[in-house]
């Protein structure tokens, strides 16, 4: 589904990603872990199409297409979904309008019929149960005045409505208490299927207790320095990231030569 080869990206001439290779197949859950500043969020933003980041090298193939050629909106319509680390507050745009517009844009792109207000309401009500959100949120402005947990649940609600093929969850666990974390994880697990894939970007192992990854990758200084199964995450939890600094620099220096 997703093939990343030698992805290099920079922002304002700062190289952040320095040769990422990653393959994600349908039905898989990948976790990308790493210390702060390792490039985890950059990878998520580059995949979603954030224009501030410049891709300087490499290819990203998504569903057989060149992902980097697509606008952010086309990526979304093709089934890529980024759950934002910091969901944006949009005063004056109510959540129902936002969700319905997004869904209809996707449908339009696929040559499908627009969803009526009634049908939409039925659909969204059902999806809201999944993340235990009250219907009153539909009338509120997107994320405005939402608590941290409500914002993250709103991200998963959007995911549920848009039914992506590939979901990238960027630090969705940050700022969540244990109850909210369970709700979010439960929502994600319900949406998981053989036909879609999930990339969980996280600093901590905590979320991975609930969303169990098939693969874990450690990102450090813009490169994936280690991959393994879920045991790697447990190992990281025990050891922290300090061991990376002792073991990896040799490689990093090598790259920079």
């Amino acid at each position: 589904m997703l093939k990343i080869k030698n992805l290099n990206a920079s922002i304002e001439n700062n190289e952040i990603l320095k040769g990422i290779d990653l393959q994600v197949n349908a039905g898989e859950v990948h976790a990308i872990m790493g210390p702060n500043g390792s490039g985890k969020s950059t990878l998520a933003q580059v995949l979603a199409g954030r224009e501030e980041y410049e891709v300087t090298d490499g290819v990203v193939e998504y569903d057989g297409r060149d992902l980097l050629e697509l606008s952010p909106e086309d990526r979304a319509r093709e089934g890529l979904f980024l759950a934002f680390q910091y969901p944006v507050e949009i005063p004056g745009v109510n959540t129902a309008y936002f969700l319905r517009t997004a869904l209809n844009e996707k449908r339009l792109y696929r040559g499908e019929k627009q969803i009526s207000a009634m049908e939409f309401l039925k659909l969204v009500r059902e999806k809201m149960k999944l993340v235990q959100m009250d219907e009153s949120f539909l009338k509120r402005s997107v994320n405005e005045g939402f608590s941290g947990g409500e914002k993250k649940r709103n991200e998963i609600l959007q995911m549920a409505v848009l039914e992506p093929k590939l979901a990238v969850l960027d630090e969705t666990d940050s700022g969540l208490d244990i109850d909210a974390l369970k709700i979010v994880a439960n929502g994600v697990n319900t949406l998981k299927s053989r036909n879609n894939a999930i990339i969980v970007v996280t600093h901590y192992q905590r979320l991975l207790e609930y969303i169990v990854p098939d693969f874990v990758h450690v990102l450090y200084k813009g490169r994936i320095v280690k991959s393994g199964d879920r045991n790697l995450a447990l190992e990281l939890e025990k050891q922290g990231y300090d061991w990376l600094k002792e073991n990896v620099p040799a490689q990093a220096v090598h790259v920079e030569e």
Binding site: G49, P72, E73, R75, R77, F84, V88, I90, L162
Partner: peptide, 30 residues
């Protein structure tokens, strides 16, 4: 126009022009 907002809307499949219009309209809407 809040570019973060525009990107957020685009990342949900809303085209850029509409995303900008939505942001301006929302600002007036307040």
């Amino acid at each position: 126009i809040d570019e973060n907002g525009v990107f957020y809307l685009r990342a949900r499949g809303i085209n850029e022009q509409l995303a900008k219009n939505i942001m301006i309209h929302a600002f007036a809407g307040e």
